[in-house]
Design a protein around this nucleic acid. Sequence first.
DNA 1: ATTATTCATAATAATTTCTTATAATTTGTT
DNA 2: AACAAATTATAAGAAATTATTATGAATAAT
Lengths: 311, 311
Amino acid sequence: MTITQLKYVLMVAEYKNFTKAAEKTFVTQPTLSMQIQKLEEELAILIFDRSTKPLKLTAIGEKIVEQARNIVNEADRMQDIVDQQKGYIGGDFKLGIIPTVMPTLLPMFLMTFTKRHPKVRLKIEELNTEDCIQKLQEGHLDAAIAATPLENENIKERVLYYEPFVAYITESHRLYSKKNIVVEDLDLDDILLLEDGHCFRDGVINLCKASKKDTTDKFQLESGSFETLIKLSNEGLGMTLLPYLHTLDIKDKEKKYLHYFKEPSPAREVSIIQHKSELKPQIVNALYDVISGIVRGAIAFQDVKIISPVK
Amino acid sequence: MTITQLKYVLMVAEYKNFTKAAEKTFVTQPTLSMQIQKLEEELAILIFDRSTKPLKLTAIGEKIVEQARNIVNEADRMQDIVDQQKGYIGGDFKLGIIPTVMPTLLPMFLMTFTKRHPKVRLKIEELNTEDCIQKLQEGHLDAAIAATPLENENIKERVLYYEPFVAYITESHRLYSKKNIVVEDLDLDDILLLEDGHCFRDGVINLCKASKKDTTDKFQLESGSFETLIKLSNEGLGMTLLPYLHTLDIKDKEKKYLHYFKEPSPAREVSIIQHKSELKPQIVNALYDVISGIVRGAIAFQDVKIISPVK
DNA sequence: ATTATTCATAATAATTTCTTATAATTTGTT
DNA sequence: AACAAATTATAAGAAATTATTATGAATAAT
């Protein structure tokens, strides 16, 4: 059994296809066939059931793959150990960021981070929470920034900051005159929401459900960006809720529509998350340090109540 | 980096000598030199400091070795997974047993075990607790039977049975007439003890310390076997304490000297212990099942108070 | 029925690993 | 200090392994 063979197994298990896995691995297909056969022979079991298309893992194959991932992860960590000892922070790093965090947070920390750690080649991808989790588990992402807690035992979370919800309420809304609003004021029926798939949407729904017993699940309008929600709100189509960092670059004349919650303000917890095997810890630490440092300057500490981001 | 290279590193780290490690690994010395050099080159660090004799690990080398052991253990577990799936229980298994358990327990379960699992080649070694722990950590033992709890975070324990202490008191002793004795009756100064290194000795000392405040640490006589202690006791040199299973094959005429404790009787906890990586789980399970099943028939359940086996 | 897709096999090339032989270095002894 | 012994490194070639190209066989798709 070699580490190379195990990596081949993982690739075939992922692509469910020797030919495609071979391409991605930059070897020829017979190489995979032979090496995986050798491993199957050594272990005296079949890892893959090739009789179906696409091929599938055998029962024992599932366990083999799980253990192969353990071994490969432990092997990858070897380089981490060396890098850490050398104080070296560099190499490729694939970071996922959820859409509602991306546009505000990324510009805040990216310049600082790349200046401080020039040898790290960050590859940033906008992904929703679900995709982040899956890609972390498959090893296609090194870490992600998402709203937490996720309660996924394969994922480790490190809280970066707590971001209060801020209400955006225009003149035509019943709550406009109220300076500090409370959760109980909210009514899901007149709140503009992001489209399905955004965890911020789920957070808002959880928030409203916590305040009122029943909600008629007929949402009026849905959009993919806060900018649209603000415009719709300006047209008198309802209020909306924004994460605090989004309120920082709002137009001056719209600022009067921002209504802050009475403390403890509902807030989302934003964390850097990674697979439990905690690979590339130096880079994750570096990201954590830079981001939490920068955000600490942008969000004044206040008493918050964390809203769950999951359905 | 290959698993083979990591195994070579572990061998050299253990023997602190390329030549000896090569012999034990059944390869030539240049093989080790070259493969380890290749690994050092790939990681761009030195694992061994060859300038001293015997050679020693570098600071980073220590961490490399630790991680290498993780990887090799995970790799070894692969075969376990296959064996488990196949329901196969076999192969070499190195079991350590502490001296005070060996002579009574081994005859009880060995026949049954080898009959039930003929493909397992048990290699049993009598070792004190300390040696068991060290050999488990180095991977020279697959499991051991020892008194617990050990409170060692690298060792996993599974309790096999609780074995009450039984007092052996002859006519000349002040406690002879007392039928059921209690811990408070004991005085370390007139108890015959096993020689240093036996955890049963430490257990007895702990027991006595728990009952009396101070003990003058001048023990009268010490021996390596309970048989000797019994003979010394018969000569009127003091009482002694025996583990329950030892009392089962005592001579009939000596049986009257056995004094049982009032419940909760002090007892030792005897467990099967292994390294936290839990290799060969099927065989450990098989041993657990056989031993705990057999002992359940030999020791009636009673209320016990566990005595720590460590100094 | 034909074509395309996909995995396995065979032969061979490339690479890696191991061994033998020997050198270089250090340690211990006289 | 000189010599012997022990130990690790290096060089060259043999052995073994791994990968590639070419091709075959089986299955699914058109």
